[in-house]
Simulated scan of single mutants.
Amino acid sequence: MKLYGGIDLHSNNCVIAIINEQGETLTVKRLNNDMSVILSFLSPYKDNLKGLVVESTFNWYWLVDALMDAEFKLHLANCNGLMKLDRFIA
Protein backbone atom coordinates (compact mmCIF):
# COMPACT_ATOMS: atom_id res chain seq x y z
CA MET A 1 0.00 0.00 0.00
CA LYS A 2 1.32 3.44 -0.95
CA LEU A 3 1.03 6.08 1.74
CA TYR A 4 1.74 9.80 1.70
CA GLY A 5 2.28 12.15 4.60
CA GLY A 6 2.19 15.84 5.31
CA ILE A 7 3.52 17.78 8.26
CA ASP A 8 2.12 21.18 9.19
CA LEU A 9 4.89 22.59 11.34
CA HIS A 10 4.26 25.21 14.05
CA SER A 11 6.61 26.73 16.63
CA ASN A 12 5.94 24.18 19.40
CA ASN A 13 3.86 21.46 17.72
CA CYS A 14 3.12 19.88 14.39
CA VAL A 15 0.14 18.20 12.79
CA ILE A 16 0.93 15.06 10.81
CA ALA A 17 -1.52 13.52 8.37
CA ILE A 18 -1.14 10.19 6.58
CA ILE A 19 -3.27 9.38 3.53
CA ASN A 20 -3.50 6.36 1.25
CA GLU A 21 -3.25 6.37 -2.55
CA GLN A 22 -7.01 6.95 -2.86
CA GLY A 23 -6.62 10.16 -0.85
CA GLU A 24 -8.37 8.75 2.20
CA THR A 25 -7.10 10.03 5.53
CA LEU A 26 -5.72 7.23 7.69
CA THR A 27 -4.65 9.35 10.64
CA VAL A 28 -4.15 12.96 11.71
CA LYS A 29 -2.41 13.83 14.95
CA ARG A 30 -1.08 16.95 16.65
CA LEU A 31 2.27 16.24 18.32
CA ASN A 32 4.76 18.22 20.35
CA ASN A 33 7.88 19.18 18.42
CA ASP A 34 9.88 16.37 19.99
CA MET A 35 11.73 14.18 17.49
CA SER A 36 11.34 11.02 19.55
CA VAL A 37 7.55 11.54 19.62
CA ILE A 38 7.41 12.34 15.90
CA LEU A 39 9.56 9.36 14.92
CA SER A 40 7.55 7.06 17.15
CA PHE A 41 4.34 8.22 15.47
CA LEU A 42 5.74 7.83 11.94
CA SER A 43 7.58 4.53 12.41
CA PRO A 44 4.59 2.20 11.77
CA TYR A 45 4.06 3.89 8.38
CA LYS A 46 7.71 4.21 7.32
CA ASP A 47 7.93 1.19 5.02
CA ASN A 48 4.88 2.27 3.01
CA LEU A 49 5.46 6.05 3.00
CA LYS A 50 6.38 7.21 -0.48
CA GLY A 51 7.12 10.67 0.85
CA LEU A 52 6.52 13.28 3.51
CA VAL A 53 5.80 16.88 2.59
CA VAL A 54 7.03 19.50 5.05
CA GLU A 55 6.13 23.15 4.63
CA SER A 56 9.27 25.22 4.18
CA THR A 57 8.67 27.82 6.86
CA PHE A 58 11.43 29.55 8.80
CA ASN A 59 11.81 26.71 11.34
CA TRP A 60 11.75 23.57 9.15
CA TYR A 61 15.46 22.69 9.08
CA TRP A 62 15.67 20.76 12.41
CA LEU A 63 12.71 18.57 11.45
CA VAL A 64 13.92 17.86 7.92
CA ASP A 65 17.46 17.11 9.09
CA ALA A 66 16.23 14.61 11.69
CA LEU A 67 13.78 12.94 9.28
CA MET A 68 16.51 12.66 6.64
CA ASP A 69 18.80 11.07 9.23
CA ALA A 70 16.00 8.57 9.90
CA GLU A 71 15.87 7.88 6.12
CA PHE A 72 12.43 9.27 5.33
CA LYS A 73 11.86 10.55 1.79
CA LEU A 74 11.09 14.28 2.11
CA HIS A 75 9.72 17.06 0.00
CA LEU A 76 9.74 20.74 0.95
CA ALA A 77 6.67 22.72 0.01
CA ASN A 78 6.33 26.44 -0.40
CA CYS A 79 2.95 27.28 1.11
CA ASN A 80 2.37 30.06 -1.41
CA GLY A 81 2.93 27.73 -4.37
CA LEU A 82 0.97 24.61 -3.45
CA MET A 83 -1.66 23.11 -5.71
CA LYS A 84 -4.26 20.57 -4.61
CA LEU A 85 -2.57 17.42 -3.35
CA ASP A 86 -4.65 15.14 -5.57
CA ARG A 87 -2.85 16.55 -8.61
CA PHE A 88 0.39 15.00 -7.33
CA ILE A 89 -0.92 11.52 -6.51
CA ALA A 90 -0.38 9.10 -9.38
Rank of each mutant, 00 (worst) to 15 (best):
S36V: 05
C14H: 01
R30L: 05
L9R: 00
V37A: 04
A17I: 00
I16T: 12
I16H: 12
I7W: 12
N32S: 10
V37C: 01
G23D: 09
V28Y: 09
D8C: 02
E21A: 11
N33K: 13
T27F: 03
N13W: 00
D8L: 01
G23H: 10
V28K: 15
E21F: 06
I16A: 14
N13C: 00
N12F: 05
S36L: 09
L9A: 03
L9V: 03
D8Y: 00
I16N: 10
S36R: 12
E24H: 09
Q22F: 11
T27H: 01
C14N: 08
E24F: 04
N20F: 14
L9E: 02
E24T: 07
N32L: 05
H10V: 04
R30G: 05
N13E: 07
S11F: 03
V28F: 11
I19H: 06
I16D: 10
C14M: 09
L9G: 03
V28L: 14
N32I: 06
E24A: 08
V37L: 06
K29V: 05
D8I: 00
S11C: 04
L39N: 12
E21M: 08
E21I: 07
E21Y: 08
I16L: 12
M35T: 05
L39V: 03
R30W: 02
T25W: 07
L26T: 00
I18T: 04
S11P: 02
S11G: 01
N20S: 13
D8R: 06
L39Y: 03
T25C: 13
R30A: 10
C14E: 01
E24L: 07
R30H: 06
K29W: 09
L9C: 02
I19A: 11
V15H: 14
N33I: 07
V28Q: 15
S36I: 04
N32G: 05
D8Q: 08
L26F: 07
L31E: 11
L26S: 06
V37P: 03
Q22H: 13
I38Y: 11
L39R: 08
T25L: 15
E24G: 05
I7A: 13
H10C: 10
R30Y: 01
I18Q: 04
L31C: 11
V15S: 15
S36C: 05
I19W: 06
L39D: 01
L39E: 08
S11W: 02
T25N: 08
A17D: 13
I7V: 15
H10Y: 02
R30T: 01
N12W: 03
T27L: 09
N12G: 02
N13L: 01
A17Y: 04
